[in-house]
Every structure is written in structure tokens, then in C-alpha cells.
Design a protein around this nucleic acid. Sequence first.
DNA 1: CGCATTTCCTGGTAGC
DNA 2: TGCTACCAGGAAATGC
Length: 274
Amino acid sequence: METVRRELEPWLTGRTILGACLEDAPPGPKYAGLQRAAGQRITSVGRRGKFLLMPLSRGDELVVHLGMTGVVSDRPPPGHLRVRLDLSGEARNALYFRDIRRFGRFMVVPAGDYGLLPTLASMGPEPLSDEFSVAALKRTLARSRTPVKTYLLSQRPVAGVGNIYADEALWRAGLDPQTPADEVPASRVKPLRDAIRCVLTESIAAQGTTLNDYRTVAGKSGGFLDRLSAYGHAGEPCPRCGTIIAHAVVGARSTHYCPACQRPPRRRTRAGAR
DNA sequence: CGCATTTCCTGGTAGC
DNA sequence: TGCTACCAGGAAATGC
């Protein structure tokens, strides 16, 4: 999403939305308020986690989530078009939102009013910000008993970690995805924090990860796919130790991990026990 | 509130 | 060839 944001920023900043045209987009919250976009100028292009946030000149905010299969472009897509925005300006004066599987969102809300977007409202710090400190991560992990991978996916401890990056970060940090969040050893919190940052930083440098549908605004595939160590590599040797990468379902999500490098932590024994 | 489960949706593919 | 079954998953809705 950061890759997309960087492409949209120079294009859309300062443009006025002349009209919004919904195409085969069902009624409901996913496209709520879009009619209000007309006549408003896009003042900036920001991002929180996987949400794009574009403040508008009359106090609203355009919120976009690509879901699994959403693609933004300046050319009409070959099908599954959901939204067309007509923009001021001479060149590139239409934006198209394609979404094959309809998991995406493209809505206008009063700026900062995330009643329709509870995940956004309760989202953790940006992973590359100072706010995402070891102490903060340690604090939030202590609040949950769910598997650490599932907790990362909730967006609450940190913003923007999806299934692929969760697997990669846990592999790099040497943490079993099933470990209850509050049982992550204190010594592993900094490695996890650093791994999340590294994976995201490197992926941004490669313009993201394309499995199937993701494309940059320019229509390119992300280059991080062949840099993945665990995700999608079940049955292959672990790049670190050679053990065969395992596959499991954690929190209903496909999960890939090295059973040797990512061992469950030893349960802490109480002082004086035995 | 926390947490688990279910739902949404369609293209690709495995299996027959 | 054509059919069915299943899988992928981010976030919201639902259930407890």
C-alpha cells in the first residue's frame, strides 16, 4: 500500500474530484458516501496500515482499501470496474478502481470518523514510526492470549501486517506463529519488532509482493515475491537451516514456518517451583 | 470487552 | 471437455 500511495501522491494531490461513478458496486458500507466526493479537492494522500487516506477540501476523507484484488489505475481496466473518479486537469484525469473479488472499499467519510471502519479506528502504530517501540510491542503482546500471528493480523499491535509479512517476520524472528502473544519471551520482542520493520522496508524497496492480482498504479508486479523465505515455501528447505518448511492453519489463515527455527517457547517455570 | 467463528467474493486449479 | 469442489484472505459481522 505504501508503494501505491507513493504513486498516487504526485498524481492526485491538488486534484479536484469532478464526479464519482459507481459501476456494478453493490449498495452498502463499502462504497458509502462516494457521491459526496464530487466538488472536493484532494489535499493529500496518506496511509494508515493498509488503508489509503485522502483528506478532502470540505472536511471529508476518501478512504480506500484494495482488499485482495483491488487495483487503481489511470486506464479503464479489462473488467470488474467498480469506481471511476473524474478528476480536474488535462492529463490522467480519470482514476479507475478495479476489484475482482469485491473485498475492497472505496468510501467517503467525515475526516477521522471511522465508525464504519473499526479496524482503522483501533489500529496500532505505524511499523516504521518511533511509536512502534520494543516497549510498546511488549506491552500490547502482554494483553492477548491469541496466537502471536493472529494477533499481528488484527492490526492492533502494529499497522499494516498481512498474512505474507506476518509469516516472514515470524520466520526472521524465530518465533512459532502459534505462540500465545503473551507468552512471547521478552528476549524475542525486539527481534520481532526489528523483523517486522525489515520485512516491510525491504518489500517497499521492491515495490511490494505480487502473488496474483496486486499491481502498482503503473501496472507493474511487486518484486518481493522471490525474496520470501517462508510464505509459499511449504515442503521446501528452510533457507536458514534446511529443515522442510511446514504448513499449518492458524486463525483460519494459511501459515508457513520452519519447525526447527521457530520452536514454541519453553513455558516459564515459576521461581521456586519444584 | 475479548476472542472465535462465519461471511463476503470470484478466478484459478485439482480431480474426476 | 466439462463439471464440481475447494482454496486464497482483509476486515466486518456475528455469536458467546
